[in-house]
Amino acid sequence: MSSDSDRRPLLEYDYDADTPPSVAVIRAIATLEEVDPTALSTKHGQTLFDRIDPSGFDTLVQKGTVSNDLVVEFTIYGYRIRIEEPTRVLVYGGGE
């Protein structure tokens, strides 16, 4: 069995520094599912806010605290979301 570090993400989504990380997460999943970002909450029956505090998440990632020493990871919509760099979202399958 391979470890998480051996698995390749389904999607690597890069975004600019002006985009809130919470918005980038939603856009990344919408890109993967080929739907409008506003349709995700209806499709899955929950919002990002139901899983995490988006403003707290944005602050944590945007303040530059994400580095080689700190990784932010959570699951939503059946995906495991991982932030290892301040402007890149990694989306893995099998999160929930």
Rank of each mutant, 00 (worst) to 15 (best):
I26G: 07
V23C: 04
T19S: 02
K43P: 00
A28F: 10
A28N: 12
E33G: 03
P37D: 01
Y15Q: 07
P9Y: 11
P37A: 05
A28Q: 09
D14H: 12
L48T: 04
D18N: 06
T38V: 04
D18Q: 08
D16L: 07
T38P: 00
S22Y: 12
P9W: 09
D14M: 02
P20E: 02
I29R: 02
A28W: 06
A17D: 08
R7E: 15
L11A: 03
P9R: 09
D14I: 06
R7F: 02
H44A: 10
I26N: 04
K43D: 03
P21A: 10
H44M: 03
E34Q: 13
S22G: 13
V25H: 08
P21S: 03
D36T: 04
P21N: 04
R8W: 04
K43M: 08
S22A: 15
T19G: 02
R27V: 00
S22C: 12
D6Y: 07
Y13M: 06
R8A: 14
I29K: 08
E34N: 12
T42I: 12
L10E: 13
L40C: 08
E33Y: 01
D36A: 13
V25K: 00
P37L: 01
K43G: 00
L11M: 06
Y13F: 15
P9H: 05
T47V: 05
E12Y: 01
I26Q: 13
T42N: 10
A30H: 06
H44V: 09
S41V: 06
D36L: 05
A24V: 05
S41Y: 12
L32R: 08
T47Q: 11
V23T: 14
L32A: 02
E12I: 14
E12K: 15
S5N: 11
Y13N: 00
Y15V: 08
D14Q: 05
A39T: 11
D16R: 11
D36G: 02
A39I: 05
D36V: 01
D16I: 11
T31N: 11
T47L: 13
L10G: 08
A39V: 12
S5C: 03
H44I: 06
E33K: 08
I29N: 04
V23W: 06
H44Q: 10
V23A: 15
S41C: 05
R8L: 15
Q46K: 15
V25P: 07
T38K: 10
D16M: 03
Q46S: 14
A30P: 10
E34R: 15
S41M: 04
L11T: 05
P9C: 10
V35G: 02
G45H: 00
D16S: 12
S5G: 10
L10A: 15
S41T: 12
T42E: 15
A24S: 05
L40I: 13
P20A: 09
L10M: 13
V23H: 11
I26F: 04
P37F: 02
E12W: 01
T47P: 00
V35N: 01
D18E: 09
R27S: 09
Y15N: 10
T31H: 07
G45Q: 00
H44N: 14
A17W: 05
K43I: 07
S22L: 10
A17L: 02
R27D: 07
D18G: 09
S22Q: 13
Y13R: 01
I26A: 10
A28S: 11
L11C: 03
K43H: 00
A17I: 09
V35K: 05
P9Q: 05
L11E: 07
